[in-house]
């Protein structure tokens, strides 16, 4: 099998005395769509932030296309965070979509999708604008480019946020509970966009409570509990034949 796009090994993360991740191994391969489910506070979102290099792990390593990222060197199990200047470059290949969208309120939808292209990728404004328009069209918002975030619904904001990440042509796209902050009637428009991205072959990791959706689009689902991946398998076998009692309990509660 070819090299994973992202490969995490033995990831440990502590907040104070609280060990949120207790030695997690996680791989994501080119074109794969993986979902992560599990109870709140089990460390799902933390893992995503670590994979996006937005936080530094207290132990373990992350490789992106085979290169060590996020840390400078390993000395007896502990790692030192890479300087922010290097981190900002290493973060570019991985896109992130947040639960609360985190759109830039001072920029229009179009400008939100243009900003990183101009500032980070150094594209010409004209080209950035064209690509931004194309990408907004992909999420069904070609007519909303001039709207500010405050003038968009939650579902529209999240679609702009997806466009903002997609336009950078990431190697992988990470979704942190992308529909949890949405009114129920706005969830499906976001899920549709994610589904079409998956169909186009985007490499995706999705932390979600939308079990039915995970089951539908994911190649593989990981069940997280208390800082560990308890089990990980294709949707069918996870739902039909969970290996752990904890997984069984969780699935009966949410479905």
């Amino acid at each position: 099998m070819q090299l994973p796009v992202i490969s995490a090994r033995g990831i440990i993360k502590r907040y104070g005395h609280d060990e949120v991740l207790r030695g997690v191994d996680y791989d994501i391969h080119q074109g794969q769509v993986k979902a992560i489910i599990g109870p709140s506070g089990s460390g799902k979102s933390t893992l995503l932030r670590l994979l996006a290099l937005l936080e530094h792990a207290d132990g373990g390593s992350i490789h992106l296309d085979g290169d060590l990222v996020g840390a400078r060197a390993h000395q007896n199990g502990s790692s030192r965070p890479a300087p922010e200047r290097i981190l900002s470059r290493q973060r570019r290949p991985v896109g992130m979509v947040f639960q609360k969208f985190n759109l830039f309120p001072h920029l229009t939808a179009l400008e939100n999708v243009m900003l990183a292209q101009v500032v980070v990728t150094k594209r010409h404004k004209k080209e950035a604008e064209e690509r931004a328009m194309e990408t907004l069209a992909r999420v069904g918002l070609q007519n909303h480019g001039s709207h500010y975030p405050s003038e968009l619904s939650g579902g529209q904001q999240q679609r702009v946020a997806i466009a903002r990440a997609v336009v950078q042509q990431p190697r992988a796209l990470l979704f942190d509970e992308p529909t949890s902050a949405l009114d129920p009637e706005l969830v499906s428009e976001v899920l549709r966009v994610m589904e079409s991205l998956a169909a186009e072959g985007m490499t995706m990791v999705i932390v979600t409570h939308e079990i039915a959706f995970a089951r539908k689009v994911a190649d593989e689902i990981a069940f997280f509990d208390a800082g560990l991946i308890l089990e990980q398998s294709a949707p069918l076998s996870l739902f039909e034949n969970p290996q752990h009692e904890r997984t069984r309990q969780f699935l009966t509660h949410v479905s």
């Binding site: 937005l54 981190l87 973060r91 896109g95 947040f98 990183a116 946020a161 990440a165």
Partner: peptide, 9 residues
Amino acid sequence: LAGRALGMT
């Protein structure tokens, strides 16, 4: 966080 995730310094 969103800015950093996009690779901004």
